[in-house]
């Protein structure tokens, strides 16, 4: 009898403090057979457990093109994430997954890509950003790649080293911003909310372009509105939802938006799909 609720065990091989209260874990499966059979695609998520505290849902923040380990990135917020944050290198966590659908990379061939994220919403995008960068390096299958990322303040930005790395890359435009009041004296990025900077400073051309948005529901709403004013059509806009989940298996009943279960039917949705859903997110 296989138990869908039982996680596989993983060792934390590295802990990175990304920002205050935000950590990245590098994880490796302890069982060799599980490790060999594991594969995932960008956009999918997992249920991570701190034994004794419970499970939390995060995306897989690393790219499937870099399979030596998987990464997750989380903010210390509640009981489980606090227990996870207290773990150190060599400790064991549980992992169930990968669950959910994936970013439609095949549909993006030959197109320019804009990734738009706020705060702790960069980790889901980071997986697909590296996936697209690596594939473009291999065979040039995507056009120009832009990344618009903002956080409340300079110190709250996650993946600071990688933001600089993307900034230096050819055919990549890195637009970084912090909320008003969050800037420092030596800040060289924009100041303003992500949708505002997107619409008024960056002003991307919608021609042959797909925009991928991740953030809290309010940011997704304003980013979609800004993109529409820039001339983007709904089918050019993609997002990934972050509803509360417990099982990830379409059974526990809390991530639904109408008849759509984010864990099974998502988490990746186009703006067209979201527009057809009831106003419940």
């Amino acid at each position: 009898m296989s138990n869908i609720y039982q996680p596989d065990l993983m060792t934390i091989t590295k802990v990175i403090q990304e920002a205050p209260g935000i950590k990245t874990f590098h994880l490796k499966f302890q069982d060799e057979e599980v490790a060999n059979n594991f594969s995932f695609e960008t956009g999918q998520f997992g249920e991570y457990s701190a034994f004794g505290a419970g499970e939390s849902t995060f995306c897989i923040a690393s790219s499937p093109t870099r399979p030596e380990h998987i990464e997750c990135c989380f903010r210390e917020t509640g009981k489980v994430t606090t227990a996870l944050a207290n773990l150190t290198e060599g400790d064991t966590i549980g992992f169930r997954g990968p669950y959910g659908n994936t970013f439609p990379l095949d549909d993006w061939k030959g197109k320019n890509l804009i990734f738009i994220g706020g705060g702790i919403a960069l980790p889901p995008l980071r997986s697909v950003i590296w996936n697209c960068l690596d594939l473009r390096e291999q065979d040039g299958r995507f056009g120009h790649i832009s990344i618009v990322y903002g956080a409340r303040s300079v110190q709250d930005l996650v993946y600071k080293r990688e933001i600089e790395e993307w900034n230096q890359m050819e055919n990549v435009t890195m637009v970084k911003t912090v909320d008003p009041g969050g800037e420092t004296d030596d800040w060289d990025g924009h100041v303003g909310f992500v949708p505002h900077v997107l619409e008024n400073d960056f002003k991307p051309d919608p021609e042959n372009t797909v925009a991928i948005v991740c953030g809290p529901p309010i940011m997704i709403k304003f980013a979609f509105e800004a993109l529409e004013r820039l001339g983007f059509k709904q089918e050019q806009m993609v997002t990934t939802m972050e509803n509360r989940m417990k099982c990830g298996l379409g059974k526990c009943g809390r991530c639904n938006i109408g008849s759509v279960y984010v864990c099974i039917d998502g988490p990746v949705f186009t703006a067209t799909q979201l527009a057809a859903l009831p106003n419940d997110f």
Binding site: Y5, S49, F51, G52, A53, G54, E55, K246, C247, K251, C252, G253, R254
Partner: peptide, 8 residues
Amino acid sequence: CFDIVDEN
């Protein structure tokens, strides 16, 4: 609907 927790 159900919840999943650790009873420790």
